[in-house]
């Protein structure tokens, strides 16, 4: 975990791009392909929702994923389930101890509760997701509780829960193998009011490989 591994994953590279800080991104990852998300500079939350490519009414379910593995944290081996209980993608490897799926996506509206009404005009992940969804006639109804790659949300014994300092070093990565054709929607988190991005949103690299 201490040595950043920015080498590309095994297989033929079919896509390799850097997603700018604060930007949305989406693409279908085909069954059998692996998406590597690289946290280039460290401590960068990457918000992510998965949709079944041929029927996006079926989509990532944080609740089904947590129930099926009896744990709130996403780790190597976690199967990312849909709301119909099907496996969309599998975490085949990661350099980071755990990832979050209970913290949700930041929004202008939730920011106003968490930090104050002065944050209302700031960019947020829900803005990215809704904007990206609009190109395929999906909308806010389709923005469901998401995955936060590289984000650290502990739950304490008294139920206290919150986003704390990140645990991903520069170059940290997570590999996601698509089990069926999966539309992956990402918001490279623009949050500047909490430590999820080290108060400084940075780019991430996305590499898709096929065997």
């Amino acid at each position: 975990m201490s040595t950043p591994d920015v080498s590309t994953p095994e297989g033929r590279i079919v896509y390799d791009e850097v997603v700018a800080a604060r930007a949305p991104w989406s693409r279908v990852v085909k069954a059998g392909e692996t998406l590597r998300i690289v946290d280039l500079e460290g401590n960068q939350a990457v918000d992510c929702i998965l949709y079944r490519a041929d029927d996006p009414v079926e989509r990532y379910s944080a609740a089904d994923t947590m129930t099926s593995q009896n744990n709130v944290y996403l780790v190597t081996g976690t199967r990312l389930l849909s709301n119909e209980g099907n496996v969309l993608m599998t975490i085949t490897g990661t350099t980071v101890e755990r990832h979050d799926t209970i913290g949700g996506a930041c929004s202008r509206e939730s920011n106003s509760l968490r930090y104050g009404h002065h944050t209302r005009a700031q960019h947020a992940c829900v803005e990215n997701f809704v904007h990206d969804n609009a190109q395929r006639e999906m909308g806010k109804r389709d923005v469901v509780p998401n995955i936060n790659w590289f984000m650290n949300v502990p739950v304490e014994a008294d139920g206290s829960l919150g986003i704390v300092d990140g645990i991903s070093p520069p170059g940290g990565w997570v590999d996601l193998r698509a089990e069926i054709d999966t539309l992956v929607a990402i918001s490279n988190c623009p949050q500047i009011n909490n430590p999820c991005n080290g108060f400084n949103p940075t780019p991430v690299r996305l590499i898709i490989t096929a065997l």
């Binding site: 913290g103 996506a105 939730s110 509760l113 968490r114 829960l161 919150g162």
Partner: peptide, 30 residues
């Protein structure tokens, strides 16, 4: 289109468990 959002409910109130005095929050900050 505005509905219960459980991640916001736990995150915004800094509390994982529902109990007396808790709010059920929407995805629109209400």
């Amino acid at each position: 289109t505005e509905r219960l959002n459980l991640p916001d409910t736990v995150k915004i109130q800094w509390q994982a468990y529902l109990g007396q005095g808790a709010l059920l929050l929407s995805d629109m900050g209400r």
